[in-house]
């Protein structure tokens, strides 16, 4: 059941990314370019997603457990530290350089382009690098 649900949610999520324009990296760069070609339409993507998730997550707190699993696994960390800010800064830099964030990077693979593959491979490389460094630092995340 878990597998079927994960597949279903993944497909809907991917369709949402493609429909919204998030897989169009030039559109994303135009959205981020507030001093130039500013295309504000992408603001409505996160906006309308939050319109669903904010009340949805709020109401889900009334339930003791999810439908097909024994517990909700929510992130418990609440510390705002240097690691969080440095990570978000690196991510923002990378996002602004090419216009793809992880979700659209996966969806874009389906367009069969070498550029998307290069992006995904180097992104996985960056993830591996972070994992190696944080393990070396004795941090077992």
């Amino acid at each position: 059941m878990k597998i079927v649900i994960a597949l279903f949610c993944g497909i809907i999520f991917g369709m949402g990314l493609a429909l919204s324009g998030m897989t169009d990296r030039m559109k994303v760069l135009n959205f981020l370019d507030v001093l130039g070609a500013w295309d504000i339409s992408l603001m409505f993507v996160m906006g309308s997603a939050l319109l669903v998730t904010i009340p949805g997550f709020y109401l889900s707190r009334r339930k003791a457990a999810p439908l097909f699993s024994d517990r909700f696994s929510e992130p418990t960390g609440s510390v705002i530290d240097f690691k969080l800010v440095l990570g978000a800064t690196c991510f923002g830099l990378g996002w602004g350089l090419y216009g793809l964030c992880p979700g659209p990077a996966i969806s874009s693979l389906s367009y069969g382009r070498l550029d998307s593959l290069l992006f995904l491979v180097t992104m996985l490389g960056g993830m591996t690098l972070e994992n190696l460094l944080s393990h070396r630092a004795g941090d077992n995340n």
Partner: peptide
């Protein structure tokens, strides 16, 4: 399209959480 896509993304995220808690 942005609104429609955002709603799909939000619904998929919420459904994943409500069904398997992730």
């Amino acid at each position: 399209n942005a609104i429609g896509g955002g709603l799909l993304i939000g619904l998929a995220s919420l459904f994943l959480f409500l069904s398997i808690g992730r």
